[in-house]
Computed example of a mutant assay.
Amino acid sequence: MAIIITDECINCDACVSECPNNAIYEPDQEWSYSDETALSGIVTLPSGDEIDADIENEPISDEFYFIVPDKCTECKGFHEEPQCASVCPVDCCIPDDNHVETEEVLLQKKAWLHGE
Rank of each mutant, 00 (worst) to 15 (best):
N57Y: 12
N57T: 06
E58T: 14
E58A: 15
E58Q: 14
P59Q: 14
P59D: 15
I60R: 06
S61E: 09
S61N: 11
S61H: 10
S61I: 09
D62M: 13
D62E: 14
D62P: 02
D62F: 13
D62R: 13
E63Y: 11
E63L: 11
F64D: 09
F64L: 10
F64H: 15
Y65G: 06
Y65F: 13
Y65N: 14
Y65L: 07
Y65A: 10
F66G: 03
F66A: 04
I67K: 00
I67F: 00
V68D: 00
V68C: 01
V68P: 01
P69F: 01
P69Q: 02
P69K: 00
P69W: 01
D70H: 04
D70E: 15
D70C: 02
K71V: 04
K71G: 01
C72A: 04
C72V: 08
E74K: 05
E74H: 08
E74A: 11
C75F: 04
C75K: 02
K76M: 10
K76F: 13
K76Q: 11
K76P: 00
K76S: 13
K76N: 12
F78S: 07
F78L: 02
F78P: 01
H79I: 04
H79A: 13
H79D: 12
H79R: 06
E80V: 07
E80I: 08
E80K: 09
E80A: 13
E80M: 08
E81L: 10
E81S: 13
E81I: 10
E81C: 07
P82I: 08
Q83M: 15
Q83S: 14
Q83N: 12
Q83R: 14
C84L: 12
A85N: 09
A85V: 05
A85I: 06
A85P: 01
S86Y: 02
S86D: 14
S86P: 01
S86K: 12
V87F: 13
V87R: 03
C88V: 05
C88T: 07
V90S: 11
V90T: 15
V90P: 02
V90G: 06
V90F: 02
D91P: 00
D91Y: 02
D91N: 13
D91T: 10
C92D: 09
C92W: 04
C92I: 08
C93L: 06
I94D: 05
I94L: 15
I94A: 06
I94Q: 13
I94K: 07
I94H: 06
I94Y: 08
P95Y: 02
D96C: 00
D96P: 01
D96M: 00
D96W: 00
N98T: 14
N98P: 00
N98F: 04
H99K: 07
H99C: 03
H99W: 14
